[in-house]
Amino acid sequence: MTEYKLVVVGAGGVGKSALTIQLIQNHFVDEYDPTIEDSYRKQVVIDGETCLLDILDTAGQEEYSAMRDQYMRTGEGFLCVFAINNTKSFEDIHHYREQIKRVKDSEDVPMVLVGNKCDLPSRTVDTKQAQDLARSYGIPFIETSAKTRQGVDDAFYTLVREIRKHKEKMSKDGKKKKKKSKTKCVIM
């Protein structure tokens, strides 16, 4: 069974824990209790493949930012979460993405942009803004509501699919490099 290491990042209060708990335990946590770091595991079937999701729910508070490099190193894919009623959390996505790329030393890291709290009427981040940002990053965008469960499975499952595509691409690139290195030079 394939294991996928997913990391949920975003500013404090955007609903990272609520999304994760909704996926794992099928219930909505409405009281806000700032996370330092929590880890969850769940076995699911995605596109006919049974897999184990190892999900790291991270601290959004700035005082825990020193811990970010460590979990970013171990993560295979990242859910970059903002709240649709919090423009600052949307603007912060850029910083999370840049930090992930720096730590992973790669421009090509599996990510999904997630606009959470889409059940709320007080939207300050337009869907088109988020779609445009995701398009500019070359990553999928999904709106979710941890409260109603809308888009929750889709967000995590899409990230797994992005990781699969990335692994497939990397193995193809690896095979191309191996083929090239088999060419021999004969000096007579």
Rank of each mutant, 00 (worst) to 15 (best):
T2R: 13
E3A: 12
E3D: 13
Y4G: 10
Y4F: 11
K5V: 03
K5R: 13
K5S: 04
V7C: 07
V7T: 06
V7F: 02
V7W: 07
V7Y: 04
V7K: 03
V8E: 01
V8Q: 02
V8I: 12
V8L: 05
V9Q: 04
G10V: 00
G10M: 02
G10D: 00
G10N: 00
A11H: 06
A11F: 11
A11R: 05
G13V: 04
G13K: 09
G13W: 04
V14Y: 09
V14C: 12
V14S: 13
G15F: 01
G15W: 00
K16Y: 00
K16Q: 15
K16I: 15
K16F: 00
S17N: 00
S17Q: 00
S17R: 00
A18H: 05
L19F: 14
L19V: 10
L19S: 15
T20H: 03
I21N: 14
I21G: 13
Q22T: 09
Q22P: 04
Q22H: 10
L23I: 10
L23V: 12
L23M: 14
L23S: 14
I24D: 01
I24R: 06
I24E: 03
I24N: 09
Q25T: 13
N26C: 09
N26E: 12
N26A: 13
F28P: 03
F28H: 07
F28N: 01
V29Q: 08
V29T: 08
D30Y: 07
D30H: 09
D30A: 08
E31T: 10
E31K: 12
E31Y: 09
E31I: 07
Y32M: 11
Y32V: 06
Y32L: 07
D33C: 05
D33F: 04
D33G: 14
D33M: 04
D33H: 04
P34Y: 12
P34T: 14
T35H: 15
T35E: 15
T35M: 15
T35I: 15
I36G: 01
I36R: 00
E37Q: 06
E37V: 07
D38T: 02
D38P: 00
D38C: 03
S39T: 11
S39Y: 07
Y40A: 04
Y40W: 11
R41Q: 01
R41C: 02
R41N: 02
R41G: 02
R41H: 03
K42T: 07
K42A: 05
K42E: 05
Q43M: 09
V44Y: 08
V44G: 11
V44T: 11
V45R: 12
V45P: 11
I46Y: 07
I46G: 09
I46H: 10
I46R: 08
I46P: 13
I46S: 10
D47L: 02
D47N: 06
D47E: 09
D47A: 06
D47P: 04
D47T: 05
G48W: 03
E49A: 09
E49L: 03
T50F: 05
T50N: 11
T50E: 11
C51N: 11
C51A: 09
L52V: 12
L52P: 05
L52G: 08
L52T: 12
L52Q: 12
L53Q: 08
L53D: 00
L53A: 05
D54Y: 04
D54G: 03
D54S: 07
D54P: 01
D54F: 00
I55N: 15
I55R: 01
L56C: 13
D57A: 01
T58G: 10
T58I: 08
T58P: 13
T58K: 04
T58Y: 08
T58A: 12
A59W: 07
A59N: 12
A59E: 05
G60S: 15
G60W: 11
G60A: 14
G60N: 15
G60H: 15
Q61E: 11
E62M: 07
E63G: 06
E63W: 03
Y64R: 10
